[in-house]
């Protein structure tokens, strides 16, 4: 019984760091990464409206002090921006498959 209690406590302690609330530094890092990817997509003339919305949502949440939500939105923006970059790169050749010949 004692052993299982200590194991449970150990497990709880080991999980604690990953479950901590996000802070401003986390948000700034996540937002910077998302913004960089979004700028890269813009340079390829292939931004998505949803990326801009997610970035705006991240900023709004951070302004309101909700850094958990801000980090989640920034990460979503980064993923969307990266998907738009992937699309732009793959379409450089893929568009030809659609062409009427």
């Amino acid at each position: 019984m004692k052993r299982s209690l200590s194991l449970a406590m150990l497990l709880a302690l080991s999980l604690a760091p990953s479950a901590r609330a996000a802070n401003e530094a986390d948000y700034k890092a996540a937002y910077a990464a998302a913004e960089a990817a979004s700028k890269e997509a813009a340079g390829m003339r292939n931004q998505w409206t949803v990326t801009a919305s997610a970035l705006a949502a991240a900023k709004k949440a951070a302004d309101g002090g909700d850094f958990d939500r801000a980090v989640a939105a920034a990460r979503e923006a980064e993923a969307l921006a990266k998907a738009s970059i992937f699309q732009a790169v793959s379409e450089k050749e893929a568009w030809k498959a659609m062409e009427i010949r």
């Binding site: 998505w48 379409e91 893929a94 568009w95 659609m98 062409e99």
Partner: peptide, 14 residues
């Protein structure tokens, strides 16, 4: 022509 056939946007539509 390339613009016309290129997929874009989250909907992945050309």
């Amino acid at each position: 022509k390339r613009y016309f056939y290129t997929r874009r946007g989250q909907m992945n539509f050309s």
